[in-house]
Every structure is written in C-alpha cells, then in structure tokens.
Simulated assay, not measured.
Amino acid sequence: QLNVPFPTLMEWAKRPAELGGFGPIFTEVARRLLANHLDNPDAMFAVGVTHPVTGQLLSLHPMAQRFLRGLPAELVQSLNQRCTWMLCRRPAISCDLDHTKPYSEGGEASVANVAPLCRRHHRVKTEGDWKVEQTSPGHLTYTDPHSRQYKVTPPRLTDPVEPADPDPPPF
C-alpha cells in the first residue's frame, strides 16, 4: 500500500509518501512507483480520500471498475493500518477482519462493523469477557472485564493542516 498526499502527488506540496511495511519514502520514489505500475494489469490502485484537517482516511475509490472486488476489506485495512487492539503493531493486511457486533447477533458485514484484529487478539476478544463498540468506521471502544474502557482511533494518513497563526506571540 502506497499512501501519497494528493497535494504532494500533484507537486503542490512536499510532504513524504508512506509505503506500507516500509515507512516514509521520498516523493520522487512514490511518483516513479506509480508511473511504473499504471499499465500493470496486476497492480491495484485506489484513491484514498482523507479528511483535510485530521488526515484520517474517509473512503477509498477504485480507479477502474475491475478493482471493486474486495474494496470494503481494503478500506478497513487501509483505515486502521494495524491490529486495532491496544498497542498491537501487527499490520492489518495480516489480521482477521472481525465483526464488532457478531454476525450471529445481527451484525452486518460492512465497513462500519468490521475491524482488523490479529489472530491472538481476535481470540481474546471473542473468548474473553471483552466488549467492543465501533462508533464510526475505525473508531473503537474496548471495554475490559473490569469495565475499563480503551479508545482506539485510526491513524492519520496525511499531515493535518496547520491553522494560520493570526496573532504572533508578544515578546
């Protein structure tokens, strides 16, 4: 997965791109990766729309009709990037897609009810006394057996917009 802020891709800004499993990469490297794979039939491209202020992923849009297959799963993995259990660093691509509200209890198979959990944490959640609620896609609240709550939010995929400082600090 390659995340490139649109203004960077269009050469309006110089924020770095991020290559999944690797980390930040130079903008020029990201542009070359995209250019070298645009005509590759096995390459899957989607445009990620991020919130202009928070930088969090809002939705994914395929660049061609043939890429629609699996897009909801890809959105969930792109939104969270990692296992949503507190402090777990396993990449979302290698996690189970867990229903927040179990399917057997009427939970639907949708982006708003699915989150990545590594196999270990999936078992802890399912077999333990943990409760989980997803208030919006990627925003989860875990409640442990002692009723303590832990909130998890998706990471920013682009830098937030810094507000202009209208008044300089007095000296």
Rank of each mutant, 00 (worst) to 15 (best):
K14A: 12
A73G: 08
V124C: 05
R32W: 09
L117F: 15
D159H: 12
G48Q: 13
H146M: 10
A92F: 01
R32K: 14
P155W: 09
V152H: 14
V152C: 07
A46M: 13
G138R: 09
A112G: 13
P145C: 10
A73D: 14
V4F: 13
D39M: 13
L34Y: 14
P145Q: 12
P170I: 13
T27H: 09
D159Y: 13
P16Q: 03
R119V: 00
L34M: 15
D96H: 13
Q81S: 02
V76W: 04
A35M: 13
S59Q: 11
G48T: 11
Y150D: 09
E74L: 08
G23L: 07
F67T: 08
G20F: 04
A164H: 09
G138W: 11
R120E: 09
K151C: 05
R148H: 15
T54E: 11
W85P: 09
W12S: 02
E133R: 10
H37A: 15
C95F: 01
R89E: 15
L60I: 06
D159L: 14
G107Y: 09
G23M: 10
A30I: 14
E74N: 02
G48I: 12
A43Y: 01
K101P: 00
N36M: 01
L33E: 08
A43R: 01
P91F: 02
G55E: 09
P62D: 08
G70R: 00
S94H: 05
H121Y: 02
F26I: 04
